[in-house]
Amino acid sequence: MAGAPVGVGIIGAGNISDQYLTNLTKFPDVRVLAIGDLLEDRAREQAAKYGVPTAGGVDAVLGNPDIEIVVNLTIPAVHVEVSESIIAAGKHVWSEKPIGVDRESSLGLLEKADAAGLRVGVAPDTVLGPGIQTAKRAISRGDIGRPLFAQTSFQWQGPEIFHPNPAFLYARGGGPLLDMGPYYVSALIHFFGPVAAVAALGLKGSETRRVQVGPQAGDEFPIEIPSTVSVLLQFEQGAQAQSLYSTDSPLFRHGVVEITGTEGTLVIPDPNTFGGDIRITRPLAEVVIPPAPVIQEIVEVPQEGVLVGRGLGLLDMARSIRADRPHVATGRFGYHVLDTLLSIEESVESRQFAQVTSTIDEIGSLTADFDPFAATL
């Protein structure tokens, strides 16, 4: 309805719903009208906590005629099933990552949405935060010359040091690649465009691990997936990237993303966050012969935009629906990220390069003056 906030519903009242509700209930351009969950009491608790007028089962969301977009916060294994029910109810979908767990059903969801004239948006929307969007504008301006390659790293000793039931994070469909990979791959695609091919190697640091905290501390569980994955990405436009995803590393190093061009290296914030420091290191101005110290020019890039958190992508989608323009974090983008991650898994198994068969058109951006707290509708 033009001239009014976009009605939003949420399916899934688990832990991550707090992160969405904290922001969505503060954005003037959207209004959260209902929360639904299989555990209806949990939905009612969240509704009371955030002042949402209606709560109950899934039908409390799907049956509400004033809701235009539904946020799918269910577990990945049922993302497609729940998103299809949202489309069938005549509503747009914003889905937590990933869009699905396999190519066929995920593509089927997009086809059903297209046939119904409805939109699909897919997390992570960290790539829409001021950190990555500012860095993207710097690259587009030519601040580092022609982009050549990237290096990223996510490494630590694993979630069992804090999680009381970590086994599912080492089961099929989990692991550092599928859990954290969407943040890094999404960021790289924003910078370099679609991925053409991948190569990867994987290993297990051990065949079993032990729970370290909580009532199950000391219990062993099996490792079903590679706990370390080394990845090479080839992008359609010619750039390359090298990435490490590991839960076998005593060294704690998250959020390493370095984009190197012909005129500098751009260091950006952790892609699992919405903002942070951005800087460019320039080439040496003169020859340095060891043991003389290497001193390079470092340029700080001011971060542009309002720093918020999850819900930013849904807000862009809501405003785009009203303006009849494309939103940025589209279902097609989310599918290409999934296709890339599945291709990496296949390369690990085959020990050969794997082609990424999907592609995407030009990827949109948010403007520097995008203000989540402005009433624009």
Rank of each mutant, 00 (worst) to 15 (best):
V8E: 00
G12P: 04
I16R: 05
S17W: 02
D18K: 15
K26S: 09
P28W: 01
R31P: 03
L33S: 05
I35T: 01
G36S: 12
L39W: 14
R44Y: 14
K49D: 09
P53W: 07
P53S: 00
A55M: 05
V58S: 11
L62V: 10
L62R: 12
V71E: 00
T74N: 04
P76V: 07
E81I: 13
V82K: 08
S83R: 08
E84W: 01
A89N: 09
H92T: 05
S106E: 04
L107Y: 14
A115D: 07
A116R: 06
A116F: 07
G117A: 00
G121R: 03
D125L: 00
T126S: 10
P130R: 01
I132N: 06
I139M: 08
D143F: 06
D143T: 07
G145M: 07
G145V: 06
R146N: 15
L148C: 11
F149G: 03
A150L: 08
T152C: 07
S153N: 09
S153C: 15
W156M: 11
P159T: 09
P159L: 04
F162M: 08
L169Q: 01
A171H: 10
G174Y: 11
L177G: 12
Y183E: 03
Y184M: 07
V195S: 01
V198I: 05
A199P: 11
G202F: 08
G202Y: 03
S206T: 01
E207M: 12
R210E: 15
G218L: 00
E220P: 11
E224A: 09
P226L: 07
L232R: 11
L233Y: 03
F235E: 00
Q240A: 15
Q240P: 12
L244D: 12
S249E: 00
L251E: 15
F252K: 13
F252P: 09
G255H: 05
V257H: 09
E258D: 13
L266R: 04
V267G: 11
I268A: 06
N272W: 10
F274M: 09
F274P: 05
P283T: 02
A285H: 12
I289Y: 09
V294Q: 10
E304G: 13
G305L: 05
G305N: 02
G309E: 14
R310W: 08
R310G: 05
L312Y: 05
R322L: 13
A323I: 03
P326R: 10
H327W: 11
V328C: 07
D339N: 14
L342I: 03
I344H: 03
I344G: 05
E346R: 14
E346V: 04
V348A: 02
V356C: 10
T357G: 13
T359V: 03
D361P: 06
E362I: 11
G364Q: 04
A368S: 06
F370E: 00
F370D: 06
A374C: 07
T376R: 13
